[in-house]
Amino acid sequence: MATNLDTLVTVFGGSGFLGRSVVRALCKRDYRVRVAVRRPELAGFLQPLGRVGQVHTVQANLRYPASVEAALRDSHVAINLVGILAESGGQTFDAVQAKGAETVAKAAAAAGAEMVHVSAIGADEESPSHYARAKAAGEKAVLAAVPSATIFRPSVLFGPEDQFTNRFAALARMSPVLPLIGGETKMQPAYVGDVATAIADAVDGKAKKGATYELGGPEVLTMREIIETILAITGRKRMLIPLSFSLARFQAAFLQFAPGALKLTPDQVTLLERDNIVSEAAKAAGLTLEGLGIAPDSLEAIAPQYLWRFRSAGQFQRNGA
């Protein structure tokens, strides 16, 4: 009788923010997990997520097809999580999110492997955002090579190691004033653990083949409401200064070279001009977290578990202190 231990799942980008949650979810379901990353020597922290020998890391770079083909040898399922928020050198949106996704899909097809591909809500060939256009091109290439592939489009993700809630909490610790870009733009923040569960469910065969799911949390919040929630959780009172998109783009021309939480690119500003929420069509078709039987966790329920470190008195600070 076949078991999950007989199934080898290769995860591209498994050492990233979403990746480590996906690896954890797969290990809990007893799959053998091969993690394909550019720097496997830096991915040792994934080993304790499974039993001895359950997680194995290998070198692969989506810009080099031979390395991707080698990583997928004898694999039953390929999961592509690789994505970037900003371009750097050869790591461009087109190279990573369009051509890279195509490379994984073609290698998966050649290996006879099923595929799960993670894109993003907002992926659109006609989008003014280069990021969103590349995501759409990646989806198209994946389905052309593996028509049975399941595609997940999450909204903005939050969780302990995210670059979203942690970023704003860090900025609030540094500055008494926070710029508010796209304050009325709507988002549907999804907990990274819920999205990882959805991906593991797809590997289990619970998701529809060839379908595109849109994954959002239980609440639709404006950007202003999200930042206000983060400030409330961290016990910080900060003035929010609304910035027009034109002024934000001007600042981003310089801040795209800034380090850490200060970094902001013109393309990220463009993305903030559009709502990032689950469509009515996806809801009607049941192509959502709820459609998979997952009750999504809210920002208010999860974020206090890790944002306490940004409070002035840490985890011992009382609310309102």
Results as ranks from 00 to 15, higher is better:
N4H: 14
V9Q: 14
V11Q: 14
S15K: 14
S15W: 06
G16M: 13
S21N: 14
R24K: 14
K28Q: 15
R32P: 02
R32I: 04
P40F: 04
E41Y: 10
L42S: 15
A43E: 08
G44E: 07
F45C: 04
Q47G: 04
L49I: 08
G50Q: 09
R51G: 15
V52N: 11
V52H: 14
Q59K: 13
E69D: 14
R73M: 04
H76S: 13
V77M: 07
I79T: 12
I79K: 10
L81A: 12
V82W: 12
L85T: 13
E87K: 06
G90T: 05
G90S: 07
A101N: 05
V104S: 04
V104T: 05
A105C: 08
K106Y: 01
A108P: 12
A108W: 09
A109K: 12
A109D: 05
H117K: 10
I121P: 07
I121A: 01
D124N: 15
E125G: 07
E126W: 09
S127E: 04
Y131C: 09
A137S: 10
A141M: 05
A144Y: 06
A144T: 13
A145N: 06
A145H: 05
S148N: 09
T150W: 03
I151Y: 11
I151E: 13
R153C: 13
L157F: 11
L157Q: 07
F158W: 06
F158C: 10
T165E: 02
F168N: 03
L171M: 03
A172F: 00
S175D: 00
S175W: 02
P176T: 09
G182M: 03
G182S: 05
T185N: 01
K186P: 03
M187G: 10
Q188C: 03
A190R: 10
A190N: 04
V192R: 00
V195P: 03
A198T: 03
D201S: 08
A202G: 00
V203C: 01
G205D: 02
G205A: 09
G210P: 08
G210W: 01
G216P: 07
P218K: 01
L221G: 06
L221T: 10
L221A: 03
T222V: 01
R224M: 00
R224I: 00
R224S: 05
I227D: 00
T229F: 00
I230R: 01
L231M: 03
L231A: 02
L231Q: 04
I233Q: 01
G235F: 05
R236I: 00
M239N: 09
S244C: 07
A248H: 08
R249V: 00
F250V: 14
L255N: 00
F257E: 03
F257P: 01
L262K: 14
L262H: 13
K263E: 05
T265P: 08
P266F: 05
D267V: 09
V269L: 09
I277C: 02
G286Q: 10
L287D: 03
L292R: 07
I294A: 13
A295K: 15
S298P: 09
E300T: 14
E300Q: 15
E300L: 08
A301R: 15
P304L: 07
P304H: 08
Y306D: 07
A313L: 15
A313Q: 15
G320R: 08
